Simulated assay, not measured.
Amino acid sequence: MASSTTPYTTKQWILASKPTSAPVLSGPDATFKLQTVTLPPLKEGQLLCKVRYFSNDTGLRNFIQSTVAPERFYVPTVPVGSPMRSGIIAEVIESAAPNYKPGDLVMDFHLGTWSELVILEAATSQPLTPLPNDMPLTHYLGAFGASGLAAYTGLAFAGGVKAGDTVVVSAAAGATGCMAVQIAKVLLGAKRVIGIAGSDEKCAWVREQLGADACINYKSPTFVEELKAATPDEVDVYLDNVGGHVLDAMLTRMKKHGNIAVCGAVSGYNSDEPMTLRNWFEVVSMRINIRGFIMLDYMDKAPAILKDLIGAAADGRIKLQNGETIVEAKIEEQPEIWMRLFSGGNQGKLLTKLIV
Rank of each mutant, 00 (worst) to 15 (best):
V168C: 08
S271L: 07
G258V: 00
H139S: 11
L350V: 04
P232T: 07
T38W: 09
L306W: 04
S21M: 11
D236A: 07
F157N: 06
G159E: 03
W338V: 15
A313C: 15
T67Q: 13
F63P: 04
G59I: 05
A150I: 03
A184P: 01
N259G: 01
A123C: 03
T222L: 11
P70I: 05
L137I: 14
I64P: 01
A204E: 11
W280G: 09
R317C: 04
E201G: 15
L111N: 14
L306K: 12
Q321E: 15
N56M: 04
T58A: 05
T352S: 04
D236W: 00
Y238V: 01
G145Q: 00
D308K: 14
I64K: 03
S17T: 15
A172E: 13
Y100S: 08
I260M: 05
P303H: 09
G103A: 08
V284I: 14
Y53Q: 01
R207C: 14
S82Y: 02
S66E: 10
A329M: 08
Y152A: 07
A313E: 00
S95W: 09
A314M: 05
F73Q: 10
D308C: 03
G112H: 04
L227I: 13
G174S: 13
V266Y: 03
V167G: 08
G145K: 01
N56H: 09
L137Q: 15
T276S: 06
H110K: 10
I260F: 03
S125H: 01
V206Y: 14
N62W: 11
E121S: 10
P76E: 06
A143N: 12
R253W: 00
K353A: 10
A197F: 04
M135Q: 13
I216C: 02
V68R: 15
V51L: 06
G316Y: 03
T231F: 02
F109Q: 04
W280F: 14
A229V: 15
R61A: 08
L188S: 04
L350G: 01
P41Y: 13
T231V: 11
N99V: 01
V78K: 07
V68Y: 07
K50N: 06
A204G: 13
V169I: 11
T176I: 11
G345R: 05
I119D: 00
R61D: 02
Y8K: 10
T231G: 02
T36W: 11
V169Q: 01
V186Y: 06
A204K: 15
A302S: 12
P79M: 13
L34E: 03
K301F: 15
G177V: 14
I196Q: 00
F73P: 11
T166W: 01
D297R: 08
A171I: 06
A214V: 03
I337T: 12
Q347G: 08
L309A: 00
